[in-house]
């Protein structure tokens, strides 16, 4: 459910007057990267090649043709159906992550063009409650699938979700796995095309529903992808996991993923696929 932060958190769009964010430290290799270079490389360290997580907005910038993205259903907001009372309330957690990310929910949906091809786009931002699946995530995903059915567009999803489950919504959260999978089934039955991109991390209920249901599954290098979290597995087997366990490369070797694609090539690869299947 919760993973070690592998990279320094880089807050996007710092206030311009505070010019101190000129340098970024890669948490993997510890080296200092000039911020301009960091952004040019889409948050991939040019010394050690390790990937830092993108926000949904950065991901849109990376993948879509400039100015073509139109967000849909940004007016869907989480309710608190369980009136969850815990160590802290759901409402407080939502407010905090809204402020932190500037998003209203973990999934950003909309229409856009990629390499000139119109697509429906669903991007899960791992910075919003770990990209977990609440009712809004499920609903927006289903609506974007229904848009695909209406327009006969392909669907492109990008998953980054730490645990899948949003505990604050209890079993309603669990049912979003069923709801989104049922929507993908409709795409299949109607002959529509679905490309799923897995990024760090894609785990739990997100992995065990729409993320692994792509007709074609792409993954960024080195992403953590799997069902049970590494800590849960380590507690179960009472030993350390070998290095590289549950990474993109690990899954590729076992036939679970079509291609591992570097971030800088992602748009081009998707465009090439769309060019063949359109």
């Amino acid at each position: 459910m919760i993973f070690r932060k592998r990279y320094a958190r880089i807050t996007p769009r710092e206030t311009p007057e505070a010019k101190k964010e000129l340098w970024v430290k890669c948490e993997r290799c510890g080296r200092i990267v000039y911020e301009k270079k960091w952004k040019e490389m889409w948050k991939v360290c040019h010394y050690c090649g390790s990937y830092s997580r993108l926000t949904a907005l950065e991901r849109i910038e990376l993948l879509t043709d400039p100015g073509t993205f139109q967000e849909r259903w940004s007016n869907l907001i989480s309710a608190d159906p369980l009136e969850f009372v815990g160590a802290r309330s759901y409402v407080d957690k939502l407010k905090e992550d809204m402020l932190k990310t500037g998003l209203k929910e973990a999934l950003v949906t909309g229409e856009a063009k990629i390499g000139g091809f119109p697509v429906a786009l669903a991007i899960l931002d791992p910075h919003f409650i770990m990209g977990s699946m609440g009712s809004v995530v499920g609903e927006k995903f289903v609506r974007i699938c229904e848009l695909c059915l209406e327009k006969k567009w392909p669907l492109v999803s990008v998953s980054g979700g730490g645990g899948g489950a949003r505990m604050y919504e209890g079993a309603l959260s669990l049912m979003q796995m069923a709801k989104t999978s049922a929507a993908v089934e409709r795409l299949h039955r109607n002959g529509l095309f679905y490309i799923s991109v897995l990024t760090d991390p894609t785990m739990g209920g997100v992995a065990a529903s729409f993320a692994f249901l792509g007709d074609i599954i792409l993954a960024e290098p080195g992403a953590l992808i799997g069902f049970a979290g590494p800590r849960v597995i380590e507690q179960t087997i009472r030993q350390k996991l070998p290095p590289g366990f549950q990474t993109s490369e690990f899954l590729y070797q076992r036939g679970m993923i079509d291609l591992i694609v570097e971030r800088k090539d992602l748009k081009q690869t998707i465009t090439r696929l769309l060019n063949i299947i359109h």
Binding site: S181, H188, A207, A208, F227
Partner: peptide, 11 residues
């Protein structure tokens, strides 16, 4: 492939 196995059952 636990995640894949569950996902494809749901679908």
């Amino acid at each position: 492939g636990q995640a894949l196995a569950i996902a494809s059952n749901l679908q």
